[in-house]
Computed example of a mutant assay.
Amino acid sequence: MPSATLISAQSFLVDRIVPDCEVIHLPSADVPGGILKYRIAVSAFRSQERPRRLKFVPAQNITAPDGSIIFDFRHHSPGNWAHLLTMHLPLLFHISEQLAIPWQQALILMPKSAPRYARRALAMFGLKTLFTDDIVHGAGVEIIADPWQCFWPVRPDWATTHSVLSALHAAIAREDRQLPRRILLLRRDTRTLTNSADIVALTEPLGFEVVYPEDYTPAEQAAFFMNAEAIIAVHGAGLAPLLYRTKNSAHMKLVELFPCGHITSVFRFIATQTNTAWVGVRGKLRPEYVKPAYRLSKPYRRFSLDNFEVDPRSLMLALRKLEIAA
């Protein structure tokens, strides 16, 4: 993963007399792989996800339809839009191709509580699904991925095969809504911008239109990343369709907005794999963020979903670095 830039809010942390924005150099880094094994076997597939039930109900036994090949994706939070699009589905696309399993034969097991948008994403590719927390008997693919993220370096190739892109472009062609070329991708429930009015006022004159992903179909969300020339996005699941850009896609520019409690390199890495120029912008620090950030023996997760404020100055620096603003 090549080096990149993260820009912080204006503060006295750069100069105690003249406040300024920190421009942080993120060094290049290796993204490790791992071991991926899979085989077709007759088995009893049990959910690894904890069912969301008010009271315990023993799992029942279900037999898969004859001719189906089971892919049990009831693990690693498949109800999360980003996990489903960037982990589970690329794994399905790769394994089905390697084992010559037609998509029509694949039966995708998902938790009974899987949200509507996850169901719509699977339907977009025409996949057969079974939403259940029960034990399912039949022929299926047993998968060992160690670690689970071991295929990060190669998953863009798996998500942009001819069959995947054909299904995706067919779904996009069925939509008729005009989509913006410059997008400000915001969130409503968590990680919302507390000064969104300031950010809209800054970006609107540059041609950016506010978009909330949940207001659009999965196909339209994929189209954002295939057709847009520039996107400013709050870090989160709304960025998942970035993976479905090909190496030959038209060059795109991406500014990723982070709350201090959730800085990751996930989409920075995908950007480098999909002909996308990337700059990160970190929101303002709060006093309660500081001490836990230096407790290196514990995960830094407590503030992950906090709403946050982005300094318009730091965002403007990012836009200038990407030559979106003068």
Rank of each mutant, 00 (worst) to 15 (best):
L168P: 04
V141P: 03
L54K: 09
L179I: 10
P2S: 09
T160E: 08
W148C: 13
E209N: 12
T160C: 13
A59V: 01
R191Q: 07
A170Q: 14
D72E: 02
Q105R: 05
A121G: 01
A29P: 00
T161L: 04
N227S: 12
P180I: 03
L202D: 00
L319Q: 09
T161W: 04
R52G: 01
A64C: 03
A121Q: 11
I144T: 15
A106I: 00
A318V: 05
I108K: 03
K37L: 13
I231P: 06
Q178Y: 11
A325R: 09
I263N: 13
V141H: 00
R177Q: 12
K298W: 10
K298M: 04
Q105P: 02
P51Q: 03
A222I: 13
R245T: 01
S163E: 13
A201W: 01
E204D: 11
D133P: 08
C21Q: 07
N61G: 10
F93C: 08
R53K: 10
R182D: 00
M316I: 11
I95Y: 00
T274Q: 14
V281A: 04
A170F: 04
E209W: 05
V266D: 13
I143H: 02
R181N: 09
S196K: 15
H83A: 12
S314W: 08
I24Q: 14
P218I: 05
L54C: 11
A123S: 10
I95S: 01
R74I: 04
G140S: 05
P115D: 06
A233I: 06
A325C: 08
P32D: 09
L184V: 04
L54M: 13
L84S: 03
F73A: 09
I40F: 02
E175R: 10
L315P: 02
M252V: 01
A114L: 14
T274K: 14
F93Y: 06
R182K: 15
L92G: 03
L127N: 04
F93P: 01
Y244Q: 07
W148R: 13
R50F: 03
F224C: 01
D133K: 04
R120S: 12
P218F: 08
F45C: 06
L317W: 05
L317Q: 06
R46D: 14
A167P: 02
K284C: 12
Y289W: 11
A59S: 13
M252Q: 09
E49F: 02
W103F: 15
C21A: 11
A325S: 10
S297I: 01
K55W: 15
I263K: 09
A9H: 11
I17Y: 13
T5Q: 14
I35V: 14
G140A: 06
P65Y: 00
I263C: 03
C260P: 15
I183P: 07
I70Q: 00
A222M: 15
P218R: 10
L130V: 07
I40G: 00
R74W: 00
S314G: 02
D189Q: 14
F71M: 03
A233F: 08
F308H: 07
P259F: 07
R295T: 10
V211S: 11
T132K: 03
